[in-house]
Amino acid sequence: MAAAGFALAVASPVHGDAPARVVSMNLCTDQLAMMLAAPGQLVSVSAIARDPLSSVMHEAAAGYPVNHGGAEEIFLLRPDLVLAGVWSDPVTVAMLRGLGIEVAQLEVADSLEDIPERVMEVAALLGREAEGQALIGRFETDLAVLAGSPEGPRAAFYYPNGYTLGTGSLSHDMLTHAGFTHIVEELGRDASGRVALELLVLAAPDLVIGSEPYAGASRSEEILRHPALGTLVSGAAGMTSGPDWVCGTPHVTGALADLAAVRAGIEAGE
């Protein structure tokens, strides 16, 4: 699979003005940092980085101490730089900055075009620009290979609480890059949000993309057990959006490869 090419960086050591001790407190910055950091440069990742349902790099994350996003525990790690997301806890971010620690907050990637920019942001922060350019080169090569011809099979996302994804999302861009037609456009929806099960059934997509349920029970998942949805899915292809869908990193090529395989099966009548 294409994503297998994105291994941990083990090349040149930290040098110059690059930070020697980096802490990541966000799942997506965790992954970018693990792919780009020099040996010993990344000293902690967020606890969710070890969750196999959320993190495509959960095995690699097992090799790092974890943090839970608390200002006190991060301060005690003596970081030169903290990587966070724009939606990270503002109180934690403010406390760390008040203590004189540099905190870099990365924007969310809303499209495939955003991913190289996020890679180079982290690469520049870590003093690993050459590694960032190499990672982008591999990503863009794989992205070109995995592009599907447009107006292919019709597909929909359907998650707990009847939630679906709109046109302004990374998942939409991934789906259409793989050559699928996202039926949310037929429904006239630009933003992500809830969609009535009746509308989904009437639209009759060729592919329904769901998520892997967590252990335990949730009322939000009850709609996913509705007989009408079961009938729809039994007549269409189905797949889950796994951890390689979660963050805008080069690992999305794994999801694109899965989409290509599903599309091939639909078009072959399998």
Rank of each mutant, 00 (worst) to 15 (best):
A4C: 04
G5E: 09
V10F: 13
S12A: 15
S12R: 13
S12H: 14
P13G: 14
V14M: 06
H15S: 15
G16N: 07
D17W: 07
A18M: 06
S24V: 09
M25H: 03
Q31Y: 05
Q31C: 02
M35W: 10
A37L: 08
A37P: 00
P39V: 15
G40I: 12
G40A: 03
Q41L: 11
L42A: 07
S46K: 01
A47P: 12
R50E: 12
P52T: 10
L53W: 04
S55T: 10
V56P: 02
P65Y: 02
N67F: 05
L76I: 11
L83P: 06
V91S: 09
A94H: 02
M95R: 14
L99G: 07
V103Y: 00
A104Q: 11
Q105Y: 03
Q105H: 00
V108S: 10
D110M: 15
D110A: 15
S111A: 15
E117V: 15
E117Y: 14
R118H: 10
R118Q: 12
M120A: 12
A123N: 09
R128A: 15
R128N: 11
A130R: 13
G132L: 12
G132Y: 06
R138H: 09
F139Q: 03
A144Y: 03
L146Y: 06
L146Q: 10
A147G: 08
S149P: 02
P153N: 04
T164W: 02
G166M: 11
T167I: 10
G168H: 01
S169E: 15
H172L: 04
D173I: 03
A178F: 08
A178L: 13
F180S: 08
E186W: 06
E186T: 10
R189E: 08
S192F: 05
S192M: 06
A196T: 01
L200E: 08
A203Q: 10
A203M: 04
A204H: 12
P205Q: 11
P205G: 12
D206P: 01
V208C: 09
S211V: 14
Y214E: 12
A215Q: 15
G216Y: 09
A217E: 08
R219P: 05
E221G: 07
E221H: 10
E222T: 13
E222R: 07
E222Q: 07
I223D: 02
I223H: 01
L224H: 08
R225Q: 12
A228S: 14
A228G: 02
G230N: 15
G230H: 10
T231L: 11
L232E: 14
L232S: 12
L232D: 13
V233F: 00
G235E: 13
G238Y: 15
M239W: 04
T240Y: 01
T240W: 02
S241W: 01
G242P: 08
P243R: 02
P243Q: 05
G248P: 13
G248Y: 04
T249N: 00
G254D: 13
D258V: 01
L259P: 04
I266W: 06
E267C: 04
E267S: 01
